[in-house]
């Protein structure tokens, strides 16, 4: 029974990783850009929520809602004025610019908020649990997982049901032809990164509610997110959720055997998938 419990906790943890990864997956799917600062942007989101909570006295969930438009603007500007200039055939500029951004952001946060670890204020919700037969499920992990599913459903709706989504798909398939059809690709890219940062805000909320965070934890979140994206297959959002779940289950199983193996077993699961299915579990026809 303890194993069933461990696996269920792992699946729920996977929801958090899928939230980390969804923004990365979206941006990659549309403009083939891997943002190495993604993890640090999540941490930045967590600090923004914390700031709103402490300054305005808002509850964390409401603070996240207030933070969303702000984060959208940050993402839009970031893409429009910085990252768009790095896109092209050469893979070096986007990699090096986002890596530089990651280091700069990390240290800016360190300067602004010190290295002390922080946590969003918690209430009864964070510690409450639901008894399902012999297994008790935390409300917070359940909420995280539900949010991940909601985000992915929402993104799929956006992609396949709206005009913006059609522009996204067209740009993703062939940016040059899309721009001939009157789509301003620069703005489409900016909007995509804006939306990615709205998802980052959701991820940041759960990151801050579930555990302590400090300015240095960004890169590790980036790695989990990246692993989930690769396991799922590039550009597949449901694949990203599956990838997150695999990492989550591997980590909780590893931790159940030896607490020191938690992170390691997540990485090893990733490498195993890479060995067997180099293009991930649910790859798109082309990437």
């Amino acid at each position: 029974m303890i194993w069933v419990d461990t696996i269920i906790q792992g699946i729920l943890l996977g929801g958090l990783y899928a939230l980390f990864a969804a923004g990365l997956s979206l941006v990659f799917g549309i403009m083939r850009l891997v943002n190495l600062a993604h993890g640090d942007l999540i941490v930045m989101g967590a600090y923004l929520i914390l700031l709103l909570v402490t300054l305005l006295g808002l509850p964390p969930f409401l603070a996240a809602v207030v933070a969303m438009p702000l984060m959208f603007c940050i993402g839009w500007c970031l893409q429009k004025f910085l990252l768009n200039r790095t896109l092209g055939d050469d893979i070096l500029p986007p990699l090096l610019v986002t890596f530089g951004l990651s280091v700069a952001l990390q240290n800016a946060l360190l300067e602004g908020f010190s290295a002390d670890s922080q946590r969003l204020p918690t209430d009864v919700l964070t510690t409450a649990s639901i008894q399902a037969g012999p297994i008790s499920l935390g409300v917070m992990p359940l909420l995280t997982f539900a949010s991940a599913v909601l985000v992915i459903v929402g993104l799929n709706q956006l992609f396949y049901r709206t005009e913006l989504g059609r522009a996204f798909r067209a740009t993703s398939d062939d940016a040059t032809t899309a721009s001939l059809m009157g789509i301003k690709t620069a703005n489409i890219f900016a909007t995509a990164t804006g939306i990615a940062l709205v998802i980052v805000t959701v991820a940041a909320l759960y990151l801050g509610l579930r555990a302590n965070f400090d300015p240095n934890i960004g890169p590790a979140r980036l790695i989990y997110a990246f692993e989930a994206v690769i396991i799922g297959g590039l550009g597949s959002l449901w694949g990203t959720l599956a990838g997150g779940i695999i990492i989550g289950v591997a980590q909780t199983l590893g931790a159940a055997i030896n607490p020191e193996w938690q992170i390691l077993s997540g990485h090893i699961a990733f490498l195993l998938v890479l060995l067997v299915r180099p293009r991930g579990l649910f790859p798109r026809a082309h990437d």
Partner: peptide, 21 residues
Amino acid sequence: FGSWYLMTLGVLAISIMLVAP
């Protein structure tokens, strides 16, 4: 200046990559 140093390096690298790759 501790973290200012790394921040400067990061920003410098970004600017160089954009202005003079």
